[in-house]
Design a protein around this nucleic acid. Structure first.
Lengths: 172, 172
DNA sequence: CAATCTGATTGCATTTTGCAATCAGTTGCA
DNA sequence: TGCAACTGATTGCAAAATGCAATCAGATTG
């Protein structure tokens, strides 16, 4: 791991981690999209990342301690990528970035509904979501009562409802 | 302004604005360092930005609507850069970024004291700071009672105290 | 009137990026 | 058994971004 830094400023160091056009996109797809495999990240990406860039960034994120990689028992060549606690605690940053983008940038209705929900839920919802991610990626015990819909399920349902609304509006 | 976007996702669009190694550094120096002139940003930057990159990013940030430029009455060649409301509302993102970096990255004591204060102050302190920035950059009326120390003064005082502590520790 | 300061711009070598093509090993299916 | 499809990548190459040094012209200072 490269230990040369431009300065010890926290914002600068954070920028040295995310100051590119792809790293956060990959983490977004893992956190909100639940993607764990190379192909899922490659083909599922709305923005169309190239495979060499994806490979490079996955490697880099592992070196930085944001991801870990493990063999998938179902397929000898398949690897499963997991978020570390370091990556899971990015949820508040993602939420703030989404909230800011929703206000100031030309976001699309369907894609911003999740950001809106996350913003309205505030820190308590973020915490619940992070707990779910700790369960999925780190094997931590679930803290919510069984039967409770997960945050990701709620975000996904809201997204699908928005897509359905849009489809109805255009066909009607 | 380029209107081609990779997707309408708020996180992606935010990344299209800040997804580089310098834009947020410049905004950080303007927000927390109070810098308003080209030379201040060029020479005051800890990270050592090159003048052509600075010129390019200032132009880009103006096109994106994060900065405005005006003549400085004191010097016919001097330009004063001002933050727009769009840029001022980045304060919560900066605070979260600083908080995350403080936990996970090799930050230096002196440079992270401000992030710590901002984190501890939470949203109320962020709001006060944003009001001060609106006053400085947009000419909005001050909301705090006269005589109250400004947030930037408090951050600066804490920074200088940390530097002094460090100097004492090394000379003692 | 010379030195310095202002906000840049230019040229150039190096590095990073993005795209297309390709790779070898694994699996599913006929 | 054989072959196509799928796995996580790697390679070559052109284009773009970056960083550095030098330079610029106008404004101000001494």
């Amino acid at each position: 791991m490269n230990t040369e830094h431009r300065s010890g400023c926290p914002i600068n160091l954070s920028l040295e981690v995310f100051g590119d056009r792809w790293s956060l996109i990959i983490l977004r797809d893992m956190i909100f999209g639940g993607r764990r495999h190379f192909r899922e990240l490659l083909n599922g990406s709305l923005e169309g990342i190239a495979s060499n860039i994806l490979a490079d960034r996955l490697k880099r994120l592992m070196e930085l301690g944001l991801l870990t990689k493990a063999d998938d028992p179902s397929h000898k060549q398949k690897a499963i990528y997991s978020l570390t606690e370091m990556a899971i605690t990015l949820v508040p940053i993602m939420a703030q970035l989404g909230a800011w983008g929703r206000v100031w940038l030309p976001v699309s209705e369907e894609l911003s509904i999740r950001a809106e929900l996350l913003e309205k839920g505030g820190p308590p919802l973020w915490e619940q979501f992070m707990d779910e991610l700790r369960h999925e990626h780190l094997g931590a015990p679930v803290k919510t009562p069984p039967g409770t819909p997960t945050v990701r399920q709620k975000l996904q349902a809201a997204y699908e409802a928005a897509v359905a609304r849009k489809a109805e509006a255009t066909t009607a």
